[in-house]
């Protein structure tokens, strides 16, 4: 009896379960980032990395681990009609990952509106925000600083936040962002 409880306790200690919400406008690369993260955490999906990622309908749930943390990711669809779904997951989310398409200057203001709406939500109060300035490989991509400015990140006071340039296609920048998040959540 004691042995088992010790064993399970060990298991439980080794992996703390964390729910994170990954949001952002459509076609910003959320699902790709998750697929890449899964790949990096050693969880190889059937048939390797999918060649083509279809737009998420509604949402999907994924899991991967990072260090002592086991992340349960709610990959929300970015399409306009599903955005009101995001708020339903605010309460149980421990952190929010906001993905921005750096090459999409036009819709940066839309992204800002969505972000602002989330920041105002009481259910997310004090929770960390990680912003991925994605698609850095594109020549027309804005710099992370420009993105931060566009989103007025420096005005955020109620939340800890971080912006990380990333490229989901080769995985660069993802680990840095995740490290920051893991550090923050482990505290």
């Amino acid at each position: 009896m004691g042995y088992f409880s010790w064993f399970f306790g060990l298991m439980g200690k080794r992996k703390t379960k964390v729910n994170i919400l990954i949001v952002g406008l459509d076609n910003s690369g959320k699902t790709s980032i998750i697929e890449r993260m899964k790949l990096q955490s050693g969880k190889v999906p059937k048939g390797g990395m999918p060649q083509e990622v279809t737009p998420t309908v509604g949402f999907s749930v994924d899991e991967f681990s990072k260090g002592s943390l086991s992340f349960t990711v709610f990959d929300m669809s970015g399409a306009g009609r599903y955005r009101n779904l995001w708020e339903r997951h605010f309460r149980e989310a421990a952190a929010v990952v906001f993905v921005v398409d750096s090459a999409d200057k036009l819709r940066l203001c839309v992204a800002k509106d969505e972000l602002d709406a989330m920041l105002e939500s009481s259910e997310l109060l004090g929770k960390p925000f990680l912003v991925f300035a994605n698609k850095m490989d594109l020549p027309t991509a804005l710099s992370p600083v420009d993105v931060a400015q566009g989103l007025s990140l420096d005005e955020i006071e109620a939340h800890p936040w971080q912006i990380v340039p990333s490229n989901a296609l080769d995985g660069s920048g993802l680990q840095e962002g995740l490290d920051w998040l893991a550090n923050f959540l482990n505290k």
């Binding site: 059937k46 998420t56 309908v57 509604g58 949402f59 999907s60 749930v61 994924d62 990959d75 669809s77 599903y82 779904l85």
Partner: peptide, 17 residues
């Protein structure tokens, strides 16, 4: 009406092991 939003989750399950 929103039942469609589980589509992605189900598609994932459909290809699970």
């Amino acid at each position: 009406d929103e039942v469609i939003i589980v589509t992605s989750s189900l598609m994932k399950d459909m290809n699970s092991k």
